[in-house]
């Protein structure tokens, strides 16, 4: 998630190219963070000590961790902790862009500072984005929009389910409210009960196709009823899990059969919540309304 977020920022600022972005993402799929970088970033070793161990590694057939322990730079316990962090998304990103010579460490730090300033992110919020924790990321993207408890719960649960069933590298942009939404196509399901909800996935055609293809385990190429059917199935599962969540607090809702619109439509309501989500870097939008009258024209 961090790579999708920050990599995309660097791309839009023309700091890296689309090719470099794709290369970094692909490399990260199989890469692990090197222990030297982890030790320095964690403050357990100095850069000089890490370089010394790297040099010694070229002279003897021993692993970085074994040498660092022998030299007294790390304990067994610290090594264990670092090994468990080798999948750290932020550090993997740092390692990949620096090793590929795309940016130096200094340039990277400059860009992180610029990103925080441009997007008005506090240190704590940027740390949340670095964490790859979808709940923490949700806090950041929802901070500027006033949401009811149910609206917030619905977004958080939906994001968790997209990470779980669709793409664990998703990127989310700031949620917003609108009264009118122009859709290229709509996968919709209404919920009834203690709350009346309109829920839908829409967005750009290629995003809808990506979501449908991943969930339906089938290669769709365009937005048609079959593609939307797959998206509706995901929406149905998502809403079912949401109904379960609400039932824990004695709130009962039930799902109506999904509806599909494979042509351009306008969604109109007093207030719609829109959450832009990028699945495999393609945009889909979660559009919903709680206890509002919604019309599809």
């Amino acid at each position: 998630m961090f790579t999708s977020f920050f990599g995309n920022y660097l791309k839009t600022k023309n700091v890296i190219t689309q090719e470099q972005y794709t290369d970094v993402k692909n490399t990260q799929k199989t890469a692990r963070v090197k222990l030297g970088l982890l030790a320095v970033e964690s403050g357990l070793m100095t850069e000089k000590q890490a370089e010394e161990v790297n040099t010694l590694q070229t002279q003897m057939d021993k692993r970085f961790g074994d040498i660092a322990i022998e030299k007294g730079y790390l304990t067994d316990e610290q090594l264990g902790q670092m090994l468990s962090k080798q999948g750290d998304a932020y550090l993997l990103f740092v390692q990949t862009v620096t090793e590929k010579g795309i940016l130096t460490s200094e340039q990277l730090q400059e860009q992180i500072a610029a990103c925080k300033k441009d997007l008005q992110l506090t240190d704590a919020e940027f740390e949340a984005l670095k964490s790859n924790d979808i709940d923490k990321i949700a806090e950041v993207v929802l901070k500027d929009v006033e949401l009811s408890k149910v609206e917030k719960q619905y977004i958080e649960l939906s994001l968790r389910n997209i990470v779980r069933f669709i793409d664990n590298h998703l990127r989310v942009e700031k949620a917003y409210k609108t009264s009118k939404y122009e859709a290229v196509a709509i996968a919709n399901q209404n919920l009834i009960g203690n709350h009346s909800m309109f829920t839908a996935f829409t967005g750009e055609a290629e995003g809808v196709v990506a979501l449908a293809s991943i969930f339906g385990k089938e290669e769709f190429s365009k937005v048609d009823l079959d593609t939307l059917d797959s998206v509706c199935e995901f929406l149905n599962c998502n809403n079912g899990l949401f109904a379960t969540k609400l039932s824990e607090t004695d709130v009962d809702i039930d799902m109506e059969p999904p509806c599909m619109y494979a042509e351009e439509k306008e969604i109109v309501a007093d207030e719609l919540v829109v959450v832009p989500i990028y699945v495999e870097d393609k945009k889909v939008e979660l559009v919903f309304a709680v206890d509002k009258k919604v019309a599809i024209n």
Binding site: C237, G240, D252, D254, M255
Partner: peptide
């Protein structure tokens, strides 16, 4: 075949003679 969150419907289905339930996904 049920999505999560359909407890009431499941009770109704048992009363109507359902043999088993398969959850989605």
């Amino acid at each position: 075949v049920t999505a999560a969150g359909q407890k009431t419907k499941m009770v109704e289905a048992v009363k109507a003679g359902a043999s088993e339930f398969i959850p989605k996904p």
